Simulated scan of single mutants.
Amino acid sequence: MRWAAGAECRTLTTWAPVVAVAVLSQAGIGLESDWSGSDASLALTSALLAGPLLLRAARPVLTAALIGAALVVQVQLGGSLHFASFIAVLVASFATGRHAGGQRMTAGVLLLLVGVVLAVRDSLPESVEELVFPLFYVSAAAALGSVVRRQARQAAELHGLNEALVRERDAIDRLVVATERLRLARELHDVVAHTLTVAVVQAEACEAALDADLERAREAARQVQAAGRRGLADLRSLVRVLRDTDATTDEPGLDDLDTLAGVMASAGLEVTVERAGTFRGLSPELERELYRIVQEGLTNVVKHSSAAWVRILVRAHDSRVQLEIVDPGPAVESPVPSGGHGLAGMAERLAPFGGQVTAGPTSDGYRVHVSVPVHQEAPA
């Protein structure tokens, strides 16, 4: 609808001056003196004045030349100019400023003035001042067209900039959504993987102890229940944030590592947490990511190692925090399917903070090492 309206408007503005000049010329309105030519010559001059105006947008200089020539022909055939001649010169002058620039505009104005001078040359010896008025209105119309051309160009540039801003805003929105989806994927991975891994290990212990040690089997079943409750609580917290953007979650930090160690101890994995240095300048966001990395590392130990203990070392020095997760191994085939995103998720967590993660087997086990700078603002 908008395109159709624009097309109709362009058609109207293109043809309106043409029709007006043709009708006014044929009617002979505003003749400076009696028309000395025939009706056919009047119709011819009307066509010569109106026709070139159809080309004014595509060929403004040519239009100016044709209008100037039409003025001379009109005087030769009928001995007089009229109001339609004045309108045609104004429209052609405006078109040179609107659709031509620089030297082309100057050339179009000069061609029109030459046509006017040749058309009124017989009266110049007695009234040279008659040239002042044509010079004024031709120049003024061309200047007005030039102003409109500059404004149209600026409007087009602003429109282009606005479209670029809209595209950039859409790209930023998509990036924000993708970043948030990635963060939620990491959170869900850590919460679900940790909970299910502990639950599977305890369920296996329960099954193994059913015949030999009923009390141990009951304790293992209770640990499965506890793991499930913790997992549900974490999932509810995440869902609450998704449903309510103003809601907040209880962000875990480095102080919660001892609690996490206790949870893993209930799963049969002895975890030792060692701290060294003074922890200052750590944002809550960075502490949360370090906690999740430890959680993921311990989950991987349970899934991929038969180690009975794990050592976690967190130390701060030289404006950096370093974190190590070391287990003695040996590696075993995991009974729990792995998505293969654990180490990649660790690196993604620390990337906004400028941190690095290295991981690999040692002589008798496996080691995850994290290094991240501190005393910086949390990433947006």
Rank of each mutant, 00 (worst) to 15 (best):
V271K: 01
A16T: 14
T358R: 12
H317V: 13
P330K: 04
A5N: 10
D39L: 12
A267I: 05
L66K: 00
A107F: 02
H369I: 08
R153A: 13
V23L: 15
E296W: 01
R216F: 07
V224I: 13
L323P: 03
T249I: 11
V19A: 13
A100K: 00
V326I: 12
A47M: 13
A43C: 07
S93E: 06
A267S: 10
A217R: 06
L42D: 02
A5L: 14
A27K: 01
R236Y: 10
A142V: 02
A247W: 05
W35D: 08
Q151Y: 05
R216W: 06
L66I: 02
A247E: 11
E215C: 07
W15L: 15
L111D: 02
L144T: 12
G30L: 06
V147P: 02
G30T: 04
Q356K: 11
V177A: 14
G253V: 02
S36I: 13
V357F: 05
V91I: 08
V372E: 03
L55P: 03
C206H: 03
S338Q: 08
R153N: 10
E289Q: 14
A233N: 12
R183C: 00
D246S: 15
L31M: 13
D234F: 08
L113V: 07
R2N: 12
Y291T: 09
R288D: 12
R288A: 10
L48I: 09
S93I: 01
V177M: 06
A193N: 08
E168F: 09
L235T: 08
